[in-house]
């Protein structure tokens, strides 16, 4: 599979995750969000940017608990919980937000 942006074709896997992390741009994030029927507002960008920073440092997406804590710090304590994150990303912050952030899908017994 692939997504087309500005005449360029970007390769994705069967589920629409970027194959090459370094292909990612904000423009592509917008396109990926569109395919998930999500509007990229301020809080969603916060999550996506945090995921990218974390991945850059650790080569994996953060644990849900680490993510909720970080978002709580950035957006206010009342937002630092998985319920809020599921409001932002109904298919799961881990999976859906990772896709938009251009990260591979976390898999395992999760």
């Amino acid at each position: 599979m692939a997504i087309e942006i500005g005449g360029k074709s970007i390769e994705t896997d069967e589920e629409g995750y970027l194959v090459d992390l370094s292909d990612w741009t904000e423009e592509i994030a917008l396109e990926l969000a569109k395919s998930e029927s999500l509007e990229m507002d301020e809080p969603r960008w916060e999550v996506v940017n945090f995921l990218r920073e974390y991945y850059d440092e650790y080569q994996i997406a953060p644990a849900v608990r680490v993510l909720t804590k970080a978002i709580g710090k950035k957006l206010g304590k009342d937002k630092g919980n998985s319920k809020y994150l599921y409001e932002l990303f109904p298919y799961g912050p881990g999976k859906q937000a990772c896709k938009i952030a251009g990260l591979p899908k976390p898999t395992g017994c999760i």
Binding site: A63, V64, R65, S82, G94, P106, G108, C109, I110
Partner: peptide, 10 residues
Amino acid sequence: SADFFAEPHI
């Protein structure tokens, strides 16, 4: 490893 990562495992 899900115990390090997911809810309610953690």
